[in-house]
Simulated scan of single mutants.
Amino acid sequence: MNVRLILVLMVWPFAAIAQGFAGLGQGAEGFATPRPGVALEFPADHGAHPSYRIEWWYLTANLKGEDGRSYGVQWTLFRSALAPETREGWADPQIWMGHAGLTTPERHFVAERLARGGIGQAGVTAVPFGAWIDGWRMQGRAAEGRDELSALSLTAQGTDFAYDLDLTAEGPLVAHGQSGYSTKSESGQASYYYSQPFYRVAGTLDLPEGPIAVTGRAWLDREWSSQPLDAEQKGWDWVSLHFESGEKLMGFQLRSTDGAYTSGTWIGADGRAEPFEDGVLTMTPLGRARVAGRDLPVRWRLELPAKGLDVEIDALNAQSWMETRFAYWEGPVRITGSHRGEGYLEMTGYE
C-alpha cells in the first residue's frame, strides 16, 4: 500500500462510527443542505458541489455481445468532503473514490480507486464535462450547442478487466422528486437528484477470454447532499429499469427498523417525469441467494398500480457483490411481468 493511499484512508470521513449506510446519516453541520424550490442549473450542476458533504456520478449499462450474451457495467465517482471548501495540494478536504464493475452471467469483476482532489488525481469539470480518477475517465464529447452530458466516452481498468464505451443520449435529462429535490425520509432528509437515462452505448469489454464488442443502453445518476439519510436508515434497495415500451422507472426504498420509505419516478418514452411519493411504489423480495456470507434478495416484485406495473426483476448474476471499502450489491437485472425489459439493482446495508 503506498503512502498516498494510507493518507487517504486515515482521513476518509466515513471511517468514524457510521450512522446509516457508510455514514450517510451523519449530521450536516457546517455544510450546505438541499432546499425545495431551488432550480437545477445546467451545465453548472454537472460539475462538483464542494459545499455539500457527499456527491456522485453514477453510471450503469445493460449491454449485449454480438451473440446476444448479456453483460453489465458500472462506473462511479464519489466525492466526499471533510470541510465545505477546496484547497490546492494535499490540504484539499475533498476526497474521491471510484468504483468500476463488470458483470457477466458467470463472473463479477470489481475495482476501486481512492484519491485526493487537490493534487489533480481526481476531479470533475462541468465545461467541458470531464470526470476522472487516476486513469479512469468519463469524458464529455457533446456537439456544440448540446448538453454537456449528451455524449460521453467511458473507460476503466481493473487487474483482470477493462471497458471502453461511447454513449449518446437519445432523450432529455430527468429531474426526480420535486424538480430535482428528492426527499429521502419522513424527517426531511433530501438530496438534489437528476438522471440521464436515455443513453445508447457501443464499445468494447476486455475480459480474460479476450475483447468483446457490445451495444446496449445506459443510465447516469447525479446526486448530491450533506445528509441524504436519516440516522435510523440502514440501507436501501434501488432500481433503474428500461422497459421495452421505451418507458423507464427509477425507484428506491430506504430501510429502517420500523419500515421503509419509498420513492419513484416514472419516465415516459418522451422523457416526461411523473414522481411518486412514499408508499405508492412497493418492493417485495421474492428470492434470496447466499452472497459474500449474507442472504440477499436477488429477485424482487415491484408494483406501481398507478402505471399498471406489476413485474419481477431477477439478477443476471446473483454474486454481483462489490467488495469495496463500503461493500454493497450492484448488478444487472432482467424484467418480466406486466412490462418486460432490463435494468440495474443496487442493495446496501445488508449485514
Rank of each mutant, 00 (worst) to 15 (best):
T282G: 00
A190F: 04
L316T: 01
T159R: 15
G251R: 03
D92M: 13
R69C: 12
D237V: 06
K64A: 13
L154M: 14
W236Y: 14
Y344D: 03
L286Q: 11
E106Y: 11
E223R: 10
A115K: 01
K64H: 11
A32G: 08
Q26D: 15
V127T: 14
R116L: 14
Y52W: 03
L40S: 12
G259V: 04
I119S: 02
G331Q: 00
D92E: 07
A175Q: 07
A260W: 01
L309R: 04
T204W: 13
D237L: 01
P275Q: 10
A28F: 07
P84D: 04
V38H: 09
D314S: 13
D160V: 05
A202Q: 13
D295K: 00
K248R: 15
S153M: 05
V73C: 07
G158H: 12
V124R: 07
A39G: 02
A15I: 03
E55I: 09
Q74T: 12
W96I: 06
E247L: 04
Q19M: 12
A61G: 02
S226T: 11
R107C: 09
D92T: 12
R107F: 07
E274S: 15
T159H: 13
Q178C: 08
A143R: 15
T204E: 13
A202H: 14
G279D: 04
Y194Q: 09
M97G: 11
E41I: 12
G23F: 02
N2I: 13
E223L: 09
L149G: 03
E144I: 08
Y199S: 03
L309P: 00
A289Q: 00
L302W: 12
S338N: 10
R290K: 09
I267D: 02
D237E: 09
T284C: 03
L167F: 11
